[in-house]
Simulated scan of single mutants.
Amino acid sequence: MQTFFDNVTYGTTKAPNAPIATDYVDARVLGAGASEAHPIPSGAQMVNFSADGDFFAKFGTSIVTAAVPGADVANGSASMLNPGTRRIPAGATHIALIASAARVVTLEFWG
């Protein structure tokens, strides 16, 4: 698995703040309203999410579930909407994904 950033010397033509292309990409085809727990690959430290529409994600263990909010959530337990790129938290082994309609979500991982 590729590292997230390449070591760059200033004055080169490489972009110092852009992640390098990953060699590990997974895809999930989500059914509407069904939370799915995706395993985090061994050695992964960063993940970038991309989808063909809105979705929610939540880090945790194999029993983690994501939820589409149907009311206010004011206790810190809500799932993230379209999270983009995230550092994988310590102890997380899975990422739960859910959407209100059928979606395709890709997960790019870096070590």
Rank of each mutant, 00 (worst) to 15 (best):
A34N: 12
V29Y: 14
A101S: 14
P41Q: 11
N75I: 07
M46P: 01
A99S: 15
A92E: 10
V25P: 02
G91M: 13
H94K: 11
A66H: 04
S79M: 07
P89L: 11
I98S: 07
A102Y: 04
G91T: 14
G70T: 13
F55D: 00
F59Q: 05
G76C: 11
G84T: 10
A51F: 00
T61Q: 03
T65G: 00
F49Q: 09
I40T: 07
P83W: 08
V64P: 00
A99D: 11
N48I: 01
A90M: 09
P39N: 13
D54T: 11
H94E: 06
L30N: 01
F56M: 00
P41F: 12
G33E: 07
G91K: 13
F49H: 10
G60K: 09
G91Q: 15
A78V: 09
F49M: 09
D26G: 00
A92Y: 06
V29Q: 14
S50D: 12
A66V: 01
K58F: 06
F56T: 04
A71C: 02
V29T: 14
I95R: 05
A78H: 13
D52P: 02
N75Q: 08
A57Y: 02
G33K: 04
P39M: 14
S62G: 14
I40A: 07
F56H: 14
G43H: 03
N48E: 14
A51G: 15
A92R: 07
P69N: 02
H38W: 14
L30P: 03
V64W: 01
S62H: 02
F55A: 02
P83R: 06
D52I: 04
A101Y: 09
A27G: 00
P89C: 10
G43P: 01
S100H: 05
A96R: 05
G43N: 03
A34Q: 11
V25K: 12
S62Y: 08
M46R: 15
R87I: 12
M46K: 13
G70E: 07
H94Y: 12
T85R: 13
A51V: 02
F59E: 04
A44T: 00
